[in-house]
């Protein structure tokens, strides 16, 4: 194909995006659109999978059966969400095995929030409320993204995530209404998860490298800072209701803008964690590698069993 032909195709592609026509798997798309989506969708999938680890840590120690079944269901949902997303990435020609390998080799990223430890039960409340809350902000926007399979996966994920956030907030509410000690636990969890949750939206617009093109292609429809502000605006009243306060001395309501002003984010910490030096980065990858390595014989045995079954069936059909 000549450069001019590609240019024409790219122009037509952009016109379709502008006209809100969804892109489907076999449609022509610029190579960079495909690559950007594979990167973003697989990072998103990896985040769901790694995200099971910090919460899985508390399943066996949930304080009641009610909390335990809820947490189990939530962690199972995350496995499911990972699978919907890998499935969407595969429609773009990505290989599942390669995606997994990229994660295990440390080549692929996942959301940095999961590199923080879950130190107390209250962290399970804070994660559901804040981390899932922030994820929902982003994912609601993504239900309208231009790539059909990704947008459809997001619709299903958003429906399911809403229970995640509510169960988290309910945990916080119970603790906040409990003994002094329980309330202190809830406050401590909020203190530790607040800033990392704000960092989940990514670098500020001025620093964000992929943003402009992604907006043009409608992979993204709101900027990182816009989503972050939206999250702060809805979350502060929820914290007030709990009688807890976010660890930000600069936080105040701005009558004029109609938004909360908040203090500066520690981007050094953000980049430190992204680059692999957060509190749990090594543990998380180690846990994923262990699961992969120890599951190897199961994957192989299942395949061998399926082949044997097939052979047996063929033999039976022949002799019949």
């Amino acid at each position: 194909m000549s450069d001019q032909q590609i240019l024409n195709l790219e122009e037509r592609f952009q016109q379709r995006i502008d006209a809100e026509i969804k892109v489907e798997p076999k449609d022509w798309m610029p190579e960079k659109y495909r690559k950007t989506l594979i990167r973003q969708i697989s990072q998103h999938a990896h985040s769901e999978i790694v995200g099971m680890l910090p919460e899985g840590n508390w399943i066996s120690r949930a304080p009641s059966l009610r909390r335990k079944v809820a947490l189990l269901a939530k962690v199972q949902d995350e496995a499911g969400h990972g699978l919907y997303l890998y499935s969407a990435a595969e429609t773009l020609g990505a290989e599942r095995d390669q995606l997994t390998r990229d994660l295990l080799d440390g080549k692929a990223k996942y959301s940095s929030i999961f590199n923080y430890p879950t130190l107390s039960w209250a962290d399970i409340g804070a994660i559901g409320w804040l981390v899932d809350g922030a994820a929902i902000m982003n994912q609601v926007m993504l239900t309208r993204n231009s790539y059909g399979p990704y947008a459809r996966a997001m619709v299903k994920i958003c429906k399911e995530e809403s229970f995640h956030q509510r169960q988290g907030y309910e945990i916080m509410l119970t603790l906040a209404k409990g003994t002094e000690e329980q309330k202190a636990m809830a406050q401590d969890a909020l203190n530790r998860w607040w800033w990392p949750s704000l960092m989940m939206f990514g670098p500020s617009d001025a620093e964000s490298t992929h943003s402009a093109q992604s907006m043009k292609w409608k992979i993204k429809r709101k900027s990182n800072d816009e989503l972050r502000q939206q999250f702060v605006d809805v979350t502060i009243p929820q914290a007030d209701f709990l009688g807890l306060s976010v660890p930000d001395k600069d936080l105040k309501w701005n009558e004029e803008s109609g938004h909360y002003d908040f203090g500066p984010i520690d981007w050094d910490e953000f980049w430190r964690v992204v680059k692999g030096n957060g509190p749990c980065n090594r543990d998380r990858i180690k846990a994923r590698r262990k699961a992969y390595d120890e599951g190897k014989w199961v994957r192989e045995a299942a395949m061998a069993h399926a082949e044997k079954k097939k052979e047996r069936k063929a033999k039976l059909a022949k002799s019949a």
Binding site: G80, L83, Y84, S87, A88, E90, T91, R96, P149, A153, A302, M303, H305, A306, K309, K310
Partner: peptide, 19 residues
């Protein structure tokens, strides 16, 4: 609704139920 990996049809069906 989507796709998944499995060793054979039966496993695909069981996994589809869970996913």
């Amino acid at each position: 609704v989507g796709s998944l990996h499995a060793t054979d049809e039966e496993m695909a069906l069981e996994n589809a139920r869970d996913v």
